[in-house]
C-alpha cells in the first residue's frame, strides 16, 4: 500500500444556496520521497483537499466521505482526537500566508517549541535548542537571536522560512505546502523552492505542493494532478503533463501562460469564460462550457460525466475525446501554436 492514498474523497459543504461540492471523487497515491503537485484555479478544490487530509475541516460544516489512508491508517473515520496526535508529527502543513498562519502575540521560537513539546517529552531548554537548530537549517541568520523575535519582525521570506521550520519541527513524513511561495518575491521564491527540495531529500518525506503556478510545479514535482471543478481531470508524471498533456483544460493553462524560456508569442491563448461555481457545476463534463473541443464530442460533453481513464503508464485523463483525437490535436493544433506563433 502506498504511503498516502486517497480513495474517492468527497468534501461537500451544505449552504443556504445549495450543496457546494468542493471535492467530488478524488483519488491519488503518493509514496515517501516523492512530490505531488496539485494545480488548479481558485475554487477547484485543491486547498479543501489538503485540509481534509490534515483533518482540519469542521465536522459540523463539511460532509466528508471516501477514504484517506496515511501509512496504513484510515483518517476519515478516525476520531478527531487521534488525527490531532498525527498532525504535526506525522503530517504537517505550510500555509500560504505566514503572517496570518502565525500567532502575532508569541515569538517565533515559542510557537516552534510548543509544537515540538506537544509531540516530544522534552524540557523547554532542549526544545529551544531544537528550534534554534531548525531556524538555522532553513536559513535564518543568527537563529539564536531571531528565535525570540515576533512574526512581525521578520520579512516575508523569513516568515515563510520560519513556517517551514515549524512544519518540520517533528520530522513529519507527509508535508503539504499550500501555495508556499505565492506571497513572496521571485528571488525569495527561488530560495524557498531550493530549500524545500533540499529538505525533502534530506528527510525523505512525501511532499504535496498546491499551487496555481505551473512554473513552480514543474520545478519540484514528480507527479502532477490537475484539478477542475472539484475533480481530477488529468494526472501524470511531470513529463506527461508538460510534454504530452491530453486534456483541453491543461492545454488551456499552458496556452495562458507567457513563458520566459521560449520565444515571445504574439498572443496568449486564454481559456474562454470563467471557472465554474461549485454550487452549479455544469452538467456532463464540468469543463464543457469553456472547452473549444466540446462540439467534437457529439453532445456527450454536455450530458455525460467523462471517466478518469488511463491512457498509458499511469497517465490519467478525464475527457470524452478519443485518445487518438487528443494526441493528434495536441501534436497538430496546440503544440505548434505554443512553441512558435
Amino acid at each position: 500500500m502506498s504511503f498516502l492514498e486517497l480513495k474517492d474523497l468527497r468534501v461537500h459543504f451544505p449552504t443556504d444556496d445549495g450543496l457546494v461540492r468542493s471535492v467530488d471523487g478524488l483519488s491519488f497515491r503518493l509514496e515517501r520521497g516523492k512530490t505531488l503537485g496539485i494545480v488548479g484555479e481558485s475554487g477547484s478544490g485543491k486547498s479543501v483537499t489538503s485540509l481534509a487530509v490534515l483533518g482540519l475541516h469542521k465536522g459540523t460544516r463539511a460532509k466528508i466521505s471516501g477514504e484517506i489512508w496515511l501509512d496504513g491508517e484510515e483518517l476519515v473515520s478516525a476520531s478527531a482526537e487521534h488525527v490531532r496526535t498525527l498532525r504535526g508529527k506525522k503530517m504537517a502543513m505550510i500555509f500560504q500566508d505566514p503572517l496570518s498562519a502565525m500567532h502575532p502575540y508569541y515569538s517565533v521560537g515559542a510557537q516552534i517549541i510548543e509544537a515540538y513539546r506537544i509531540h516530544n517529552d522534552v524540557s523547554k531548554a532542549v526544545a529551544r535548542k531544537h528550534a534554534i537548530d531548525l531556524l538555522g537549517r532553513v536559513g535564518i541568520p543568527q537563529p539564536d537571536r531571531r528565535v525570540d523575535s515576533y512574526p512581525h519582525e521578520f520579512s516575508g521570506g523569513m516568515r515563510q522560512r520560519a513556517m517551514i521550520a515549524m512544519a518540520l519541527s517533528c520530522d513529519p513524513e507527509l508535508l503539504i505546502a499550500d501555495e508556499p511561495t505565492t506571497a513572496l518575491d521571485v528571488t525569495v521564491q527561488a530560495q524557498i523552492l531550493d530549500l524545500m527540495r533540499d529538505l525533502q531529500q534530506e528527510f525523505d518525506s512525501a511532499l504535496i505542493i498546491i499551487t496555481h503556478d505551473l512554473g513552480v510545479v514543474a520545478e519540484l514535482s514528480d507527479d502532477i494532478l490537475v484539478m477542475y471543478g472539484g475533480k481530477c481531470i488529468e494526472y501524470g508524471s511531470a513529463e506527461d503533463i508538460f510534454e504530452r498533456p491530453e486534456h483541453p483544460y491543461t492545454w488551456g493553462l499552458l496556452g495562458s501562460m507567457p513563458r520566459l524560456d521560449r520565444e515571445r508569442t504574439e498572443r496568449l491563448m486564454p481559456i474562454k469564460g470563467t471557472p465554474p461555481s461549485l454550487i452549479n457545476v455544469p452538467t456532463g463534463c464540468a469543463f464543457h462550457p469553456r472547452c473549444a473541443f466540446e462540439p467534437r464530442t457529439e453532445g456527450k460533453g454536455r450530458t455525460v460525466v467523462p471517466e478518469l481513464l488511463e491512457t498509458e503508464g499511469g497517465h490519467l485523463v478525464r475527457c470524452h475525446l478519443s485518445l487518438e483525437e487528443r494526441r493528434a490535436t495536441w501534436e497538430n493544433e496546440i503544440k505548434p501554436k505554443l512553441e512558435s506563433a
Binding site: 521571485v186 527561488a190 503556478d213 510545479v217 520545478e219 511531470a238 510534454e243 501562460m257 513563458r259 524560456d261
Partner: peptide
C-alpha cells in the same frame, strides 16, 4: 530572470541558476 520558475521539466536540472542571498 534566472529566479523565475520555468515550466520545462526536461531541462529543470541543467538550468543555470543564480541565487541571491537574503531579502
Amino acid at each position: 530572470l534566472s529566479a523565475v520558475p520555468v515550466p520545462d521539466v526536461k531541462r529543470r536540472s541543467e538550468r543555470e541558476r543564480i541565487r541571491l542571498q537574503g531579502d
